[in-house]
């Protein structure tokens, strides 16, 4: 991964010196050419193609923005409903993520998605406690988080 980034930057600098224009656009062209070369030579370089992982990261960011917009609309609906019919509560979400870094991202994502707010992480780092606006669709919420967020985070970090 890091070897590929270094290679890519070196190719970009080489392109800059070869074309003798020391500006950002020429660096960027060099970077694109380097990425293309790495893509075609990916069979001979150790590790998977690193831009693949960058692409997954961008996908995660877009997922985050989408969920943020949805959650805002959701909470505004709750605020302006004349009759407040929600039933809040705290439920436990067992998680497969291991490192602190992954769990931090997951809790942040949970906090900014519709109807859920992370309250605590257990001492053993494998259960996240979540406060939900509506406790009835408990199982459904767990499955949704497991399917979308955990998978997306795992694709980036592993």
């Amino acid at each position: 991964m890091s070897l590929q980034i270094v290679l890519n930057v070196i190719i970009a600098f080489m392109w800059m010196f070869l074309s003798e224009t020391y500006t950002f656009p020429s660096f960027f062209t060099g970077f694109l050419i380097g990425a293309l070369l790495l893509f075609f030579l990916r069979r001979f370089i150790p590790d998977a193609f690193y831009l693949h992982r960058v692409w997954k990261m961008i996908r995660l960011v877009f997922l985050f923005i989408k969920e943020l917009l949805l959650s805002n609309i959701d909470i505004v609906k709750w605020v302006y409903k004349p009759k407040q019919t929600y039933n809040p509560g705290i439920f436990a979400l067992p998680t497969d993520l291991k490192t602190n870094w992954e769990i931090t991202i997951l809790t942040s994502l949970i906090s900014l998605t519709p109807g859920t707010l992370s309250v605590a992480v257990s001492h053993t780092n494998d259960v996240i406690y979540i406060h939900a606006m509506d406790i009835y669709d408990n199982e459904e919420a767990i499955n949704a988080i497991k399917d979308s967020f955990e998978k997306a985070i795992m694709e980036v970090t592993r």
Partner: peptide, 10 residues
Amino acid sequence: YTRLHASTKA
């Protein structure tokens, strides 16, 4: 907790 929902998201 419900107030935190409102203040963080919106």
